[in-house]
């Protein structure tokens, strides 16, 4: 549905481009998780999709047509739920929905129906007469989402939609996002919460310094990651243990725990057999691959970005 090809963008007077050769795809019924540290270029990318920034280099296509053409003909095919509470705090929930429904050219029966449906979807029916400024953080997030859904967009961009909400609201919002995708829309979901992306994203794009570092399904991304072992052993002197584990990969000692990043040609079974052969007794052992957060940190490194 959405195809971004070799997109580059440089703000006036900026020293370096905010986006460099970004390419990605988002399909109907899919959730694309967009990850990146602050300053990675996510906002610039979203600003392109919401029509605020014009394409300088590359192309953004919606079903094969340039985004600018699509936006001109039917701007409401693409909706953005920004990170800010992008509504009028002095208006009630219903007044906000009516205002943005009219701005999205909804009228008559369709407008009335969509307001009812979006209120129900975001479970805001009980709050229709409450001024938006008096809603809790979770309710504000739900209103932000409800407004974005009013014109039944085919592509929806959700920019950190769960910031500052309680776990219940967060779970509700994540379910809601899955339902939006299940109904056939393409969803781009940005978040700093890796567990959210792991929980809902069908594809993940990791962006940093304006470039795409990784693009693939979660399995594809984590499959490439290295294997880790954590184990505690009794009956083997530290020096011998260190020498033994060193043959299997990179070793790190934290207290009584040994952490081994296995070399590509080594397996956990081989390592455990070698420990037993040396007379060591295993107190515990864990084996696993990188999770998304580890992969993200490995790719983007630790230095603070702002």
């Amino acid at each position: 549905m959405l195809e971004i090809r070799d997109l580059s963008y440089c703000y006036p007077d900026a020293e370096k481009p905010s986006l460099t050769g970004v390419s990605l795809n988002a399909g109907r019924g899919q959730i694309l998780g967009l990850l990146g540290p602050n300053g990675a270029g996510k906002t610039t990318l979203i600003s392109h999709l919401s029509g605020i920034l014009q394409v300088q280099h590359g192309a953004i296509l919606i079903d094969g047509s340039p985004l600018a053409v699509v936006r001109r003909k039917a701007p409401t095919r693409i909706a953005v739920a920004p990170q800010e509470y992008a509504f009028y705090p002095m208006l009630t929930v219903k007044e906000n929905l009516e205002c943005f429904a009219a701005a999205g050219r909804l009228g008559g029966e369709r407008k009335r129906r969509r307001i009812v449906e979006c209120l129900a979807f975001s479970r805001l029916e009980r709050f229709v007469k409450i001024r938006a400024e008096r809603l809790s953080g979770g309710l504000k997030r739900r209103l932000n989402l409800a407004i974005a859904l009013l014109p039944e967009p085919e592509l929806i961009l959700l920019d950190e939609p769960t910031v500052g909400v309680d776990p219940q609201s967060r779970a509700f919002l994540l379910d809601a996002v899955k339902m939006i995708a299940n109904s056939g829309a393409a969803v781009i979901y940005t978040s700093h919460y890796m567990d959210e992306i792991e929980a809902i994203a069908d594809r993940v794009v990791i962006l940093d310094d304006g470039k795409v570092l990784r693009d693939g399904t979660l399995d594809e991304l984590l499959r490439d990651g290295v294997a880790h072992m954590r184990l505690a052993v009794e009956g083997v002197p530290v020096g011998e243990m260190n020498a033994l584990l060193g043959r299997f990969g990179k070793v790190e000692s934290v207290g009584e725990e040994w952490r081994v990043t296995l070399a590509h040609d080594r397996t956990p079974a081989e390592l455990l057999a070698a420990v037993e052969k040396l007379g060591g007794r295993l107190k515990y052992v864990e084996f696993g691959r990188n999770n998304l957060e580890q992969l993200f940190m490995a790719l983007t490194h630790r230095p603070l970005r702002d």
């Binding site: 919401s50 909706a79 009028y88």
Partner: peptide
């Protein structure tokens, strides 16, 4: 300015207003 800062104007623009 309130509208601009909270993103409501951006939202209106993205709706094609």
């Amino acid at each position: 300015i309130q509208e601009r800062q909270c993103g409501a104007l951006t939202r209106l623009a993205s709706l094609g207003v």
